[in-house]
Each structure stands twice: as C-alpha cells, then as structure tokens.
Amino acid sequence: MSTLQKVKKYYKWSWDVSLGGKYDEWGTSTYFMEIDCNLYARRQMEIYENGNVLFYDKNHSADDYGMLCDKKLDDKNIEEFEISEAEFEQVWHSKTPINK
C-alpha cells in the first residue's frame, strides 16, 4: 500500500554513522519519523547512543543540532522500516529531548 493511500505512516531505522565534528561522541543513532500523505516528515526523533534525544516538528524544525527532514521521501525505499503509530507515540511521549 502506498503512503499516499494513508494520512500518516511511521518509520524507524538505525543510522550506523556518528554525526562527526563536535557531536561525534554522541555515537550512532536511531531515527523515528512520522510521514504525511505527501511523503514529507511531520515529526522526527533522533535517539543517540549516548542517550541524547532530539525532536523536530513544524513548531521546532531546526536548531544548532540539526533539522526536520525537508526532503520528500520515497516510501518504496523505507517501506521495510515501517512501525506502528503506537510505537512511535510511545517513544515520542517517553523521551525528553535536549533541544526543546
């Protein structure tokens, strides 16, 4: 089923490369994204190996650490990483971001 047939979809994947530079010590990360029907991120979480957490959404789309993904995603390339809305919301409501 295409993302265009649903209002929102949720994804989770691991990023095995650190940010580099002054944030290199944060380690690798796990990304969570809520994607809208136009294939753009609405909400995004980044959870790092050292425990740091970053949140981005329409009210807080960028800061000194990074930004909400502004590129249209291809749902065929991320389909295997789909998670439930419940899993996304559980993480969203249980983590405390350092950038908000």
Rank of each mutant, 00 (worst) to 15 (best):
H93N: 13
K9F: 07
E34R: 12
E89T: 02
E85N: 08
R42W: 01
S2W: 08
Y48R: 12
L39F: 11
G51H: 05
C69A: 06
S29Y: 14
W26L: 07
S2V: 04
K22Y: 02
R42D: 07
V17M: 08
S2H: 08
Y31M: 11
N77W: 05
C37M: 06
G27R: 04
H60R: 11
K76M: 00
S14G: 08
E25V: 14
L4C: 07
G66T: 05
E82T: 00
D74Y: 15
K95V: 02
G27L: 06
E79F: 09
Y10N: 05
E85I: 07
A41H: 07
S18L: 10
I83L: 05
E89V: 09
A86R: 07
D75R: 02
D63V: 06
D24A: 15
S84A: 07
F55M: 14
Y48P: 13
C37D: 12
K71N: 14
K100S: 09
E46T: 03
N52V: 04
S18R: 14
N59E: 09
C37R: 11
G66D: 08
Y23H: 14
I47H: 08
G27W: 03
M45Q: 10
D70Y: 10
E82L: 06
L19W: 03
F32N: 02
D70Q: 10
V17K: 15
L68T: 05
E80D: 12
Y10T: 04
I98L: 11
K71W: 15
T28I: 11
M1D: 05
E89I: 11
D64E: 13
V7H: 13
G20N: 07
E87A: 14
N59T: 02
